[in-house]
Write a protein that binds this DNA or RNA. Structure first.
Lengths: 211, 211
DNA sequence: TAGATTGTTAATCGATTAACAATC
DNA sequence: TAGATTGTTAATCGATTAACAATC
């Protein structure tokens, strides 16, 4: 319920891209950038970039532009990348394992503490140092380990059931990869990754291109 | 360059959701639905649903609503789901394997013919019946096997290089999972899956909720 | 200071919603 | 036929772009 409560989702969805390009610029040792230059990089208009950023504060300086490092850090804070989050994954198939394995998430502050599955053949296995545990212990685990993010990488028919477990156990946000719409309480954060839909969009344009 | 060339991306991105709910309704044996009922299911307004569908034709009937099966099939055609597409994956890590393993894509008409990787330790392995091959043979393979979709599941630093190979070999569309913006010619279809950005959005709302 | 570029207001554009005549 | 619901036009809303005064 902070001051930026009113910022539109459209704007928020652009923030990660700004953050990514600013990080790239930092890596290149560039310390200063104008909205015009950022426009060339990101493909958004300079005007839009200034509008977007000014939803969160006046990070720039007239006649100069933006300090890359400052702006990157501020956007990082806005995106919550200055925090550490504990996560668990339900569904220890390839997709779950891919997420468990991906160092980029851990570098950004998201730590997968454990994976859970119903298949006895995978229970006890480890991905890096992340153990696949029996679903039986999930609620306990979440409560004891301060888990804030629940990741769903099960088939779609199990997704709602897993979400219900997450709600009951008290996670704050759910990252859902199952191709199903799941219902969670109002105050639960839900972010869906729609691989099917993304592929269908690609398919749409492929078909349109050959007509 | 068909008649629906002008339909906005905003509308197109809603089509897969309509298609999914209509498929669900078919599975339940429901043969008829009104825009009002679809509104309850999808969360879009009835008015918006009628507007969206009318971009592609008058699929409904006054006083009746929409025939579920007809509409599902028509949307399927619009999305290109009546076609078969051949695909290959570059990057045989967990994410690549997850995609290769996912039956849902194959059921929708997307067939992964092969995976490619640079790591000699995985070359020759098989995921289901999909072989991991040496990158050396990719251009040949794409040309010989009528591959239309190139999937990128490499680390970000290899993404552009892989995209260039795809362009050279003549694929029509690229499905990119690497967290990088890649450049492709105008007439190449490019669809990005931004796992990082999705996670950051979740993080944004988690942080906002605790303020 | 002069030049550059922001922050912000106003104008435009596009997308969503409302309303209703057409019609099954 | 009467009731229901579409297809479509008009009204509203929100997002993007343009413009420029403020100011570093």
């Amino acid at each position: 319920m902070g001051k930026d409560n009113k910022v539109s989702l459209t704007v928020i969805r652009r923030l990660p891209k700004y953050h990514r390009y600013l990080s790239d610029l930092m890596d290149k040792g560039i310390s200063r950038i104008s909205s015009q230059e950022l426009s060339v990089l990101t493909g958004f208009t300079a005007s839009q970039i200034r509008q977007d950023l000014n939803n969160f504060g006046g990070f720039g300086q007239q006649g100069y532009g933006y300090n890359v490092e400052d702006l990157q850090r501020e956007l990082g804070k806005i995106l919550g990348l200055d925090q550490r989050y504990n996560a668990v994954i339900v569904g220890a198939g390839n997709l779950g394992q891919a997420i468990a394995n991906y160092r980029g998430f851990e570098d950004a502050g998201f730590k997968v503490l454990a994976m859970f599955d119903r298949n006895p053949r995978v229970i006890g296995l480890k991905i890096r140092d992340i153990e696949i545990k029996d679903m039986e212990h999930i609620e306990d685990f979440i409560k004891k380990n301060n888990v804030e993010i629940g990741i769903i990488t099960t088939p779609k028919d199990s997704a709602q059931e897993v979400a219900d477990i997450y709600v009951k156990a008290g996670v704050k946000g759910v990252w859902n990869f199952a191709p199903a719409d799941i219902n969670v309480p109002e105050d639960m954060i839900l972010e869906n990754v729609r691989l099917n839909e993304s592929l269908f969009i690609l398919s749409y344009f492929l078909k349109a291109a050959t007509k």
